[in-house]
Design a protein around this nucleic acid. Structure first.
Lengths: 343, 343
DNA sequence: TACCTCCGTTTGAACGTTCAAACCATTAGA
DNA sequence: TCTAATGGTTTGAACGTTCAAACGGAGGTA
């Protein structure tokens, strides 16, 4: 039983109207008289007609496809697959499908943009992992292509003003730090990523901000450089470390911070936090609420990923279907602290 | 700078040939004279021509799209995202792209097949999570549609003979059991899933097989029912438990098995194994080698997911491009034991 | 009555590709 | 010398949709 192809012409014949009228019922129902509209709708129903996207695309240049890069998972402690799942679902609700591609770096990703545009003409791209000097966004913007990034355009003051959705990392680490302050801790360390990571610097800034709000001086490297002696009676070393994001370096950093007097640790990621937990029985808070955090009882910051996905799709549909807004949409969502054993 | 559309006609003009000749260079190069072919190739290069898949698809009915369902991740301890990544990459190498969809159950998945076929005409489907009485495969097979499953057609002796790729779960648990036997254990328990899960029953059978090969009687429920008294001096209870797959039930099961005399445990999944680890300092082996296993030092069985993805694509390309083989391809891959702290 | 407007509908063409058939040299066979 | 076969190329049509323009009837206005 081969699946029979039902075309718009079949529907038209059945409903005793022309092809164009069927097309209008589907795309601009208000152009068609009530009675005719119903008749056509019924014919569509009875025949199980579905629009052929290839043919539609040929005429309109619209594919109803969103292209998303699938990220390579290093240690698997990431957030991308949950985001992708949400994206697939909310895209489907809006009548779009997700098409995947992979790329090793920005250059090859741009080459893939080109490939995809030629072959499948996705209506829009969803980019993740934005960073300083991101050439992908400017490439797309120059060509007037629709896209949204999950992540802010770090370090692009003016030129890079494009639509984005992001989670407020600083607010997250600030909440984590406050949680530890409330528990009585005064010497709270931070384990981060190398300087120059937009996401990393943002998360670090929340730790700084929360300490300052509590009238404590964050013992950053800068602060240390300015005042070389301890403020009070306690030994006061630098209470922050930068790592490559691995658990191994997280553990080393945690040992050093504990030796320097830290009594609790805020970490830039679950991976680093996992390492930090091995350094001793000190309260630790991670970031991303990965399955690993749930498994080992690590307190962590959870990103609202389904919501982020929904908002990405909403931003894009506004861009594609309504007349383009003057100002690009910017959406900043709040993470939430999931409290478990470690803090 | 809008991206200029280059069509096959542009290339033809540039190379001083007809459209069809360009098409032949692309699709059946051997039909075209060497010299002409080169000229056309150069024109393609210079103009940056890329075939328009929508137009091609309209004529040929081929979309070069593989449809894959994105699985909902319950506790995030799954294997799917790594498989999907591999699939995207190997599909791209073969000139295909992956299009995603989601569905809540088999019925709605079939409805989505129908939708997708009408709208995007994917050339093939990749199904995961096969199970007893899987209606999806028969639906596709009845319509003569191309597909491959990652997972065997459990409990379908004759009718369900379709192409599949799978990992030999029984071989995995057998290897795990042998590993524990080699370490001197004689009372090795198994924590599984409810009866009737194809994958679960398969993994359980490896444990049974390895014990029998070592001339030990696996203390299954069946065995217990047959002989009601202990074989030797030791207290001999049932050494297997079924769980819903959660860590919580895994822990309960582990406590019972240890109380019944088990000195080591083979688990049907990392999730269950994670729970089992909480029950006490007994060697535990999980299945799937998820990021959680790596994080907590759980010895586990690793599935060759990239390889599985490559083989899925190969099976499909053979199905789609070569003349269809008489016998559907069946590929069974071997998992490997990743030894960590817990065993 | 003649003309205009508006609404709902139909008609023809076009999107970019490939199929099927036609075409044209050239070479081979009788 | 004529016919047939072969290799390489071109031509016209078709895939299923939507755009742009044309059409025709009902109602209003002069």
């Amino acid at each position: 039983m081969m699946p029979e192809k039902v075309t718009i012409a079949d529907v038209a014949r059945r409903a005793n109207v022309s092809r164009q009228t069927v097309s209008n019922v589907l795309n601009s129902p208000d152009l068609v008289r009530e009675e005719t509209r119903e008749r056509v709708r019924q014919a569509v129903e009875e025949l199980g007609y579905r629009v052929n996207q290839a043919a539609r695309r040929m005429r309109t240049g619209r594919s109803r496809l969103l292209a998303v890069r699938i990220e390579q998972t290093q240690d698997g402690m990431n957030v991308f697959d949950r985001f992708l799942h949400g994206l697939t679902e909310s895209a489907a609700k809006a009548g779009y499908r997700v098409i995947l591609y992979s790329a090793d770096d920005d250059r090859s990703e741009i080459a893939t943009f080109d490939d995809l545009l030629g072959a499948y003409e996705p209506d829009a791209f969803v980019l993740t992992g934005t960073h300083y000097g991101d050439v992908r966004t400017s490439w797309l913007a120059e060509r007037g292509l629709a896209f949204v990034t999950f992540g802010r355009p770090w370090g692009m003051p003016e030129g890079g003003d494009h639509p984005w959705v992001d989670v407020d990392g600083a607010a997250g680490t600030a909440a984590a730090t406050r949680h530890l302050l409330d528990a009585g801790h005064r010497r709270i360390g931070f384990i981060g990523w190398p300087e120059g990571s937009g996401v990393g610097d943002d998360r670090r800034s929340g730790w700084v901000r929360a300490l300052e709000a509590a009238s404590l001086t964050p013992r950053t490297k800068d602060a240390e450089a300015r005042t070389n002696d301890a403020e009070d009676g306690e030994a006061a070393g630098v209470l922050e470390r930068r790592t490559d994001g691995s658990a191994a370096e997280g553990e080393v950093a945690a040992r050093e911070l504990i030796a320097a007097g830290a009594t609790a640790l805020v970490c830039v990621s679950d991976s680093v936090a996992l390492g930090a937990m091995q350094a001793g029985p000190v309260p630790v808070i991670g970031f991303d609420d990965t399955p690993v955090a749930a498994a080992i009882g690590l307190t962590s910051l959870s990103q609202p990923l389904s919501e982020a996905a929904v908002r990405c799709v909403r931003v894009l549909t506004r861009l594609l279907e309504d007349d383009s807004p003057d100002k690009p949409d910017h959406v900043l969502l709040q993470p939430s602290l999931v409290i478990r054993r470690t803090a």
